[in-house]
Design a protein around this nucleic acid. Structure first.
Length: 550
RNA sequence: GCCCUCGUAGCUCAAAUGGAUAGAGCAUCGGACUUCUAAUCCGGAGGUUACAGGUUCGAUUCCUGUCGAGGGUACCA
C-alpha cells in the first residue's frame, strides 16, 4: 500500500464525514520540518478554517480525534503550531517497504495514473540545416526523460520529431551547398552572409561532388536540398542515438503539403471566416482570437509561413487519437505557439489536450566568456562535441538537473576539467559503493536472498536514526516519480537521487554493513541493496548508467 | 515601445498547487583513511529571497510599480 495514497484516503474520508457540506478540498502533505516531532505534515486545517470560518487549531484537533489511522502504519499523530497535523511513520511500516523494493523496485514505484492512456511527446524538431547544438541537447534530454517518466506512470508514450524540411531555410541550405561546390571546383563565388557558414557545408559539398560528379546540376536546387537534408538528418539521428534518445516517429513537414493537409486547414480557416487578404498576403485574424495582432499565413510571395504549417501539423496530431500531447519548445517559440493554439481552438479542437513546455536557453561559457550559438554562423559548439568532451552521463544529468524554465549556465571548462564536481558522480558513487559492499559480503558468505528479506526479526534490527532516515527517503520515491510526471518537472528526479545519496554516504561512514554480528549484517545488506535498487531505477529513468564500480 | 521567462549565500542552483526557523553543491576555513571504495564523511562561516508597496492566519511563491538579465515581436523558423 502506497503511503500517500493511504493517508489521502484516510483524511478524505474523515473530512467528508466531519464536515458534510464540504465538497472541494485538497489534502496536501509535506515533510515535517526537522525541529518538530513527526515525519509528514499537513496544513489542511488552515485550508478548512478558511472555508468553515473557524479556528484552524480546533479543526486540526477535531480531525486528529476522529482519525483512526492504523497504528502499524502511523504510530503518532499530533497537532502542532497553529494547526499543522504531524504524523510519525511506524518504523515497521518503513521496514516493510524494504521487502517491496528488494523484490521489485519497478512495482514499488509503479503509478497507474496513465493506464490505457496514449500520450505523445514532440521534441527536438530542429531544422535539418546543420548538426544539433547544445541547446537542442537540452531539449532532447528533457523530452526523453519526460517520456520515460510518463512511461513509468503507465502511459503509452510516443516520441516524435518534426522535421521542418521545407521553406526558405532549406533553399538557403541547398544554395549554400551549391556555392561551396563551385568553390571546391575552383570557381570564384560570392558567399552571402546569411548563408550557412559552417564547416560542415564544405564537407557536404565534397560528398556531393563525389556522388554527382563535377558537372553540377545547377538548375536542380532540389537535388542539392534533398542530398544535404538527408545527410544532415542522418547525422542528427546518430547524435540522438549516442545520447540515448530514441524516437518512435520522424514526421516530415513536406508530407503535410504533399498529402494536401495544409490546403485542408487553409480551407477550413477560410470557411470559418478567420482569414482575409491584404497587401497580397493571406492573414489569420489572430487578433480576434485573443492575440495582439494578426499573423500572416501565406506570404505575398506565395510561400506558407511556419504558423500555417504548424497549425496543420498539430491538427494532424490531434486527429491521431492521443489523450495528451506534450510539446517541448525552446524560448524562441514563446511568441508563436499561442497563435497556433488559437487557430486550432477556433477550428473547434480541444487544445486543453496540448501541454506546452518552454525551456530557457543554454548559455555556454568557457573561461568566463560567453559563446554565442547560432547554426547559421559558424561559431557553435555541437552536441557531438559536448558529448565527446564530457560523456553521455554528465551531459544528460547536467541538462536535466535544472528546471526547464530556468536559464542553464553550462560552463564548458568546468564540465571538461573538473567533472568530478558534478553531482552525477556523487549518485553513481553510491551505487558503486553498495555493489562493492555486497561483493565483500558475499566473500564473507553473507548474501541477499528472497528468504532473508521476509524475516521480520532480521529487519527489526534496523533501528538507528540513520537507518530510519534512509528508509524514509526510500519510501518517498514513488511520490517523487509521480510528482515529476504530473507537474512535468523532470528535474525533481536528479534532486531526489542526490538527496538519497546524501543520506546514504553518512550512514556508510557511521556504520559497518558487514560485521561480526551476522543478523545485523544481513539486515543492513537488505537496506543498502534497497538503496541501490532505487538509485539504479532512478538513474534508469534519467537514462544514466549505474556502475557497479568506479 | 509591447509581450514572455527570470532575479534566492561570493559562484551555479533547490524549495509542486501560498505553509512552520529559505536548503544543497562549488569556492573558503578546520578536522577524519592499519577495518566493506576518501569520486566519501564531520564541523565552521556565508541571506533584508533585486527594490518599493499590496492581498492574508501565513508570501521566495499571488497582484501592482521600479531597476536589471535573457528571449520574442508587426510577410524567418
Amino acid at each position: 500500500m502506497k503511503m500517500y495514497k493511504y493517508l489521502r484516503n484516510q483524511f478524505h474520508d474523515i473530512i467528508k464525514s466531519l464536515y458534510t457540506g464540504l465538497t472541494e478540498f485538497e489534502v496536501q502533505f509535506d515533510r515535517a520540518p526537522g525541529n518538530f516531532e513527526g515525519d509528514i505534515a499537513t496544513p489542511l486545517a488552515f485550508d478548512l478554517a478558511q472555508k468553515l470560518k473557524r479556528n484552524p487549531r480546533e479543526i486540526a484537533l477535531e480531525i486528529v480525534e476522529s482519525l483512526q489511522l492504523d497504528d502499524n502504519k502511523i504510530s503518532r499523530t499530533e497537532v502542532a503550531g497553529g494547526g499543522f497535523i504531524n504524523l510519525t511513520i511506524n518504523p515497521d511500516w518503513l521496514r516493510s517497504s524494504l521487502k517491496a523494493i528488494n523484490q521489485d523496485v519497478k512495482e514499488f514505484r509503479r503509478i497507474s495514473i496513465g493506464e490505457n492512456k496514449k500520450i505523445q511527446v514532440e521534441f527536438v524538431s530542429a531544422n535539418p540545416t546543420g548538426p544539433l547544438t547544445i541547446g537542442h541537447g537540452r531539449q532532447a534530454v528533457i523530452g526523453d526523460i519526460i517520456s520515460r517518466l510518463y512511461e513509468a506512470c503507465g502511459y503509452n508514450v510516443s516520441r516524435e520529431y518534426y522535421f521542418n524540411n521545407t521553406g526558405r531555410q532549406m533553399r538557403i541550405l541547398a544554395d549554400s551547398v551549391r556555392l561551396r561546390c563551385k568553390e571546391l571546383l575552383g570557381e570564384k563565388t560570392e558567399f552571402p552572409d546569411n548563408y550557412y557558414q559552417g564547416e560542415y557545408i564544405i564537407e557536404l559539398a565534397t560528398e556531393f561532388i563525389e556522388k554527382y560528379g563535377k558537372d553540377l546540376p545547377e538548375d536542380e536546387p532540389d537535388t542539392f536540398m534533398t542530398f544535404a537534408a538527408n545527410k544532415i538528418i542522418e547525422g542528427i539521428k546518430i547524435t540522438l542515438n549516442t545520447l540515448g534518445v530514441d524516437f518512435d516517429n520522424f514526421f516530415n513537414e513536406n508530407s503535410l503539403i504533399d498529402d494536401g493537409e495544409v490546403l485542408d486547414v487553409l480551407e477550413l480557416l477560410q470557411d470559418n471566416d478567420l482569414t482575409y487578404k491584404e497587401d497580397g498576403a493571406l492573414w489569420l485574424k489572430t487578433s480576434e482570437l485573443g492575440a495582439k495582432q494578426d499573423r500572416v499565413l501565406i506570404k505575398s510571395t506565395g510561400e506558407m509561413t511556419y504558423r500555417l504549417l504548424d497549425i496543420a501539423y498539430h491538427r494532424n496530431k490531434l486527429n491521431r487519437d492521443f489523450d495528451m500531447l506534450i510539446d517541448i519548445f525552446g524560448a524562441d517559440h514563446i511568441g508563436t505557439y499561442k497563435d497556433v493554439l488559437a487557430g486550432l481552438k477556433a477550428l473547434g479542437y480541444d487544445i486543453d489536450k496540448i501541454q506546452v513546455i518552454i525551456h530557457q536557453f543554454v548559455t555556454l561559457t568557457e573561461n568566463g566568456e560567453k559563446i554565442k550559438m547560432s547554426t547559421r554562423k559558424a561559431n557553435f559548439v555541437t552536441l557531438d562535441e559536448l558529448i565527446e568532451e564530457v560523456g553521455v552521463d554528465v551531459t544528460r544529468f547536467f541538462f536535466i538537473m535544472r528546471s526547464a524554465n530556468s536559464h542553464l549556465n553550462f560552463d564548458l571548462a568546468l564540465a571538461k576539467s573538473e567533472s568530478d564536481e558534478n553531482p552525477v558522480f556523487y549518485v553513481q558513487y553510491g551505487c558503486a559503493r553498495i555493489s562493492s559492499i555486497l561483493r565483500f559480503a558475499k566473500n564473507q558468505g553473507l548474501e541477499y536472498s528472497e528468504d532473508i528479506v521476509m524475516d521480520e526479526n532480521l529487519l527489526a534490527k534496523l533501528d538507528s536514526n540513520e537507518e530510519l532516515e534512509l528508509m524514509k527517503k526510500l519510501f518517498e520515491y514513488p511520490r517523487m516519480v509521480e510528482k515529476a510526471a504530473i507537474n512535468i518537472q523532470p528535474h525533481i528526479i536528479p534532486a531526489y537521487l542526490i538527496e538519497l545519496a546524501k543520506v546514504f554516504h553518512p550512514f556508510y561512514h557511521e556504520y559497518r554493513v558487514v560485521s561480526d554480528n551476522k543478523e545485523l549484517s544481513l539486515a543492513r545488506i537488505i537496506l543498502v541493496r534497497a538503496v541501490r535498487e532505487v538509485i539504479r531505477d532512478g538513474l534508469g529513468l534519467l537514462g544514466i548508467s549505474a556502475p557497479d564500480q568506479m
